[in-house]
């Protein structure tokens, strides 16, 4: 399985488990998480904690944008970028 796909799946499982509204909707990779009300600002904090712990990344305040958190696809891409930033820095 491709890395991005694996990340998407992990993020989807967390969202479905954590956010009741997500269970009622058929959650696709491009489903809007913020504008549809699946994830509110407090939920975003839980999501940040999950991403930081699961993918060993640090998310700054400036990165908590609608662009990065709009959908599962956006989140998976964002996490991918953060991981590669970390790998470059660690080399």
């Amino acid at each position: 399985m491709h890395d991005t796909e694996r990340r998407s799946q992990a993020i989807r499982s967390y969202i479905v488990k954590q956010f009741p509204v997500a269970r009622k909707e058929s959650l696709r990779d491009d489903t809007q998480l913020l504008t549809s009300g699946i994830v509110d600002s407090l939920g975003m904090l839980d999501l940040v904690r999950f991403l930081e712990e699961s993918f060993m990344i640090q998310i700054s305040d400036e990165e908590l944008t609608p662009e990065n958190f709009a959908s599962i696809a956006c989140l998976a891409t964002f996490v991918g970028q953060k991981k590669s930033e970390f790998e470059v820095a660690a080399r």
């Binding site: 913020l34 600002s41 975003m44 904090l45 940040v48 305040d61 400036e62 990165e63 908590l64 944008t65 609608p66 958190f69």
Partner: peptide, 14 residues
């Protein structure tokens, strides 16, 4: 509305 998420809110709060 299109800018409502935690990041911008935290920046403004600070």
């Amino acid at each position: 509305a299109t800018y409502r998420s935690l990041g911008p809110a935290v920046q403004l709060q600070k």
